[in-house]
Amino acid sequence: MLRRLGSWDVLVIVVLAAVVVVSSATVEGFASSRFWGFLLLDVIPIALIALPMTFVIVTGEIDLSVASVLGLSSAVMGQLWLSGVPLPLILPLVLVLGAVLGAVNGLFVTGFGLPSLAVTIGTLALYRGLAYVVLGDKAVADFPFSWTGNTIEALPGTTVPWVALVVLALAAVFGIVLHATPIGRALFAMGNNQQAATFSGISVAKTKFWLFVLTATIAALAGFFWTMRYASARADNGGGLELSVVAAVLLGGVSIFGGRGNLLGVIAGVLLLITLRNALQLADVPADTLTVVTGALLIVSVVGPNAASMIRARLRRRRPAVSTAAGG
């Protein structure tokens, strides 16, 4: 029980609750259901990408190209729509595009053994550049309202967008895979010690390759959502979003060194980041300050879990010495 109290994700949930309570009392409009409807729409793309990103970071890698994949998907959507391709066909095409972009990342990381940080910084620039090649700096905004309106439709009688439920269901699936399947066990093993994982028969390279494919595919899906939500396909859609996603995942207690983290914490991390940001926005805090807050949270989230695990280790040492003495 003591261990649980020292754990970072519980702390994040507590802080999230505190932010909600304090903001409800002090920020006008925070407690309104309209505000929460908008907040959830902001949460959706970040939460969506954070799910596979959690897997990637747990294995000790990172994918910084996600926002550019989102942007390129959006640009391609715009161009396809201009060429007269119907939306029901555009959606699968965009997902395939995402898969291909992810396969490129995966190939460079696992096939050539390059660090994912370097590879995805490269594709971050490359994919964003391609987005401008595809669509230039124009915006395609004449998507039918039957699609754009539907995307942000709330559940009957509420302000909760139906897409939020889909993301929630996906989060449950990702959570189960990470914490209660053989695949999840393999991810944690390779994140902690790639060599020992290989010696246990885990195909490290293959697994990582497919994780990059999955991540970019979901980033493309987020691109579809983004385009529909704002009814606007643009090359610069989702610019800088990768930092929010990574910040949220790390804030959720996933170790940047790999091998540690849980999905509940990540969901809490996403909610904390967006709630805090939107609450500050609502309170008329200037945009510069918002960036400072995001940056500070990122630092805290990298330092924090390490401090928390140090506390945990100390608590463990203080427990009855039976276990260690018997092993001696």
Binding site: R185, F188, A189, N192, N193, A196, A197, R260
Partner: peptide, 13 residues
């Protein structure tokens, strides 16, 4: 320590 076990993981895992 490097190949046989993932030292950070639990005994049962």
């Amino acid at each position: 320590r490097q190949q046989g076990l993932v030292m950070e993981l639990s005994i049962e895992r």
